[in-house]
């Protein structure tokens, strides 16, 4: 086994964990914001997928990576819009609509892809990296962690920003109240529906960027159904993180490492069917749920519709 742990293997493992983990991080972070505000956002898988599709299309047509990420955010928010209108404004079942949005986005993006790209399967050029002076010279972790596209650093920064917002701002307080005791928030003169709508749109934007990252940085191509459950893993991350964004980061890197183990093992010359490796992240998620399931904490009003004045 000693031969496994060469520099090349370790670099590709860390790099892969980051590349595969980053979409999970953004999805988990987004879901955490929704859940904090009391919305169980099952549609996040659809938001990621739409982000991946639109991010790819925009990056491909404009040639701009950043416009691509913007397109991803818009795509995610476009799927968040029906969620806001139907679940938060009208009070329809969040789970049923979430499933509908995920199914619909899967069908729609696959359909659009079929009509636009099925003949050509265009690829995007590699996204340029932004080496951090000094740190990127480090052995093994240098090229894997500090010579990455700028969006990676922004995503990590988003963890700190989210933690700050949760802990030290009025907005964080309002989000938490919307999830734990919406009536109290209402009594304090803050519109619960608006706070929750804001949360879901933010989730859509973050998940959309996560999807765009998968298409632009991860794969360089859009493939139908490419998110393959990443949004759902994001939901688990949010559940287990108990409201703390830093746990989302840790979990995302752990599951990312599982997802990327295939490539790393191939670098090391070990051949295992990809299906075995594809089981790893989901097995890891279930193991985490078995070990710590009881400790998952969710807001009291999660999944319930708030009607002003109703008991």
């Amino acid at each position: 086994m000693g031969a496994l742990f060469t520099d090349a293997f370790l670099t590709s493992l860390v790099l892969g964990a980051l590349t595969a983990g980053l979409p999970l991080l953004l999805a988990g972070l987004g879901e955490q914001i929704s859940e904090k505000a009391g919305v169980l956002n099952i549609g996040i898988e659809g938001m990621m997928l739409m982000g991946a599709y639109l991010g790819f299309v925009v990056a491909y047509t404009t040639g701009s990576v950043w416009l691509g990420f913007l397109g991803g955010a818009v795509g995610g928010m476009a799927v968040a819009l029906p969620m806001v209108v139907l679940c938060i404004r009208l009070g329809l079942n969040q789970i049923v609509i979430g499933i509908a949005l995920t199914l619909g986005t899967e069908g729609l993006t696959a359909l659009l892809h079929h009509f636009q790209f099925a003949q050509s399967y265009p690829r995007l050029p590699a996204v340029p990296t932004l080496p951090i002076p000094g740190l990127s010279e480090l052995p093994v972790i240098g090229p894997a962690l500090f010579d990455r596209p700028a969006i990676v650093y922004l995503a990590i920064l988003a963890v700190f920003v989210t933690a700050y917002v949760f802990r030290s701002t009025q907005l964080g307080l309002a989000l938490q109240a919307a999830g734990d005791k919406p009536a109290a928030l209402d009594a304090a003169g803050v519109d619960v529906v608006n706070v929750r709508s804001f949360a879901v749109f933010t989730t859509g934007a973050l998940a959309g960027v996560g999807g765009a990252f998968m298409a632009e940085v991860g794969a360089g191509i859009f493939v139908p159904f490419m998110t393959n459950g990443a949004g759902f893993i994001g939901i688990v991350l949010a559940m287990q993180a108990r409201g703390n964004p830093f746990w989302v980061l840790a979990g995302a890197l752990l599951f990312g490492a599982c997802l990327s183990a295939t490539t790393a093992l191939q670098v090391a010359g070990v051949s295992i069917p990809t299906d075995v490796i594809q089981m790893l992240p989901f097995a890891a998620v279930l193991l985490v749920l078995v070990l710590f399931g009881r400790r998952a904490s969710l807001p009291a009003a999660l999944g319930t519709h708030y009607v002003r004045g109703a008991r």
Partner: peptide, 9 residues
């Protein structure tokens, strides 16, 4: 899939 999703909504 799209038909089913729209149906649900």
């Amino acid at each position: 899939l799209v038909v089913v999703a729209i149906l649900l909504v």
